[in-house]
Design a protein around this nucleic acid. Structure first.
Length: 304
DNA sequence: TGCCAGGCCTGTC
DNA sequence: GACAGGCATGGC
């Protein structure tokens, strides 16, 4: 059954396509297909209405929470530094982008898979993990397949039902070779050891959101394959730390170009300090606007 | 064919 | 603390 939510200051396509989540796929007519928890979800935005349906049925609160529809984007962007012209431009250009609230384990595993990979390849790895280790999602007639779903030749075999993202314990009990088969490469041993550390209680992902930011980051970087960048991604995208500011190659390039155009000897440490002190309590949201802006700028430059 | 990718780990200075 | 090299694999 198709349902509707009235939305404002929201852009679904930007939010799902800005590189923070990897399971959403744009079909024709603006419909996005993805998986939230144990439900396959299909959604699109028509003006100020969000249309959505889920198999099996899901509560509206789930999608509202995931898309952060309960927060005021105007209040958040009002905390950005007033004299920051590049950030203001990025916000104006991509207005409606929201930082979604992902499930911590899926977020962590996805970003462990992300290092030195292109986004298209990260999506492929996450999909392979779900197909190989996740639970098939079925509705009452045993299927969860919308006819709009297209075959992706890179994934090989025929169309399968949607799959939930595999739980920690399933990955913890997988073999190294099985993870290599999901094209993880040298990241396979990182994901395996990380899953085992979480499964055995050495690190408690659920405890992170009640910690101080610095403490939560220290805890995350204990995991193999997790450094400052991936740790901050997990804190921002799945643990409610709006101030977390992941610095990757794109953001580093953007920061240098936009804020230090004539200083060529700025160290990474100085960039970290600048980001921490300049952008305010919602630095992570600013990061997403700058990140998406930098990526679309790069795409446009390569087209021209 | 060769380059490079939402980094991290290790060894060296 | 800064820096270089290595790491697997696929897309272009």
């Amino acid at each position: 059954m198709r349902r509707r939510i009235n939305v404002s200051d929201f852009n679904l396509a930007t939010t799902l396509d800005c590189g923070q989540a990897f399971r959403w796929k744009l079909e024709h007519d603006g419909w996005f297909l993805g998986v939230l928890g144990k439900s396959a979800v299909r959604t699109r935005q028509v003006d100020n209405v969000l249309e959505w349906e889920a198999q099996p049925a899901a509560d509206e609160a789930l999608i509202r929470y995931y898309l952060a529809l309960d927060v005021s984007l105007r209040d958040i962007t009002a905390t950005f530094p007033a004299d920051d012209a590049p950030l203001r431009d990025a916000v104006r250009q991509h207005w409606g982008l929201r930082v979604a609230r992902q499930e911590p384990w899926e977020c962590l595993a996805s970003f462990i898979a992300s290092s030195t990979k292109r986004i298209v390849q990260i999506r492929q790895i996450v999909e392979l993990l779900a197909r190989r280790f996740g639970e098939p999602i079925t509705n009452t007639d045993g299927r969860a397949r919308w006819p709009q779903r297209a075959e992706d030749p890179r994934l090989g075999e025929a169309i399968e039902p949607y799959h939930s993202f595999p739980t920690v314990d399933v990955i913890a009990h997988a073999s190294h070779q099985q993870l290599l088969d999901c094209k993880l490469g040298f990241r396979a041993k990182y994901l395996l050891t990380t899953a085992r550390m979480i499964d055995s209680g050495v690190v408690d992902l659920d405890a992170l959101r009640s910690m101080e930011y610095e403490r939560a980051l220290e805890e995350l970087v204990r995991l193999p394959g997790v450094g400052a960048k991936i740790g901050n991604c997990v804190l921002l995208f799945s643990c409610g730390f709006d101030q977390a500011f992941p610095i990757d190659v794109w953001i580093e390039r953007a920061l240098r170009r936009l804020y230090f155009p004539r200083k060529h000897n700025v160290t990474r440490r100085q960039l970290r300090e600048f980001a921490r002190s300049h952008f305010g309590p919602y630095a992570g949201w600013a990061q997403q606007y700058l990140f998406f802006s930098e990526r679309t700028r790069n795409k446009n430059m390569r087209k021209s």
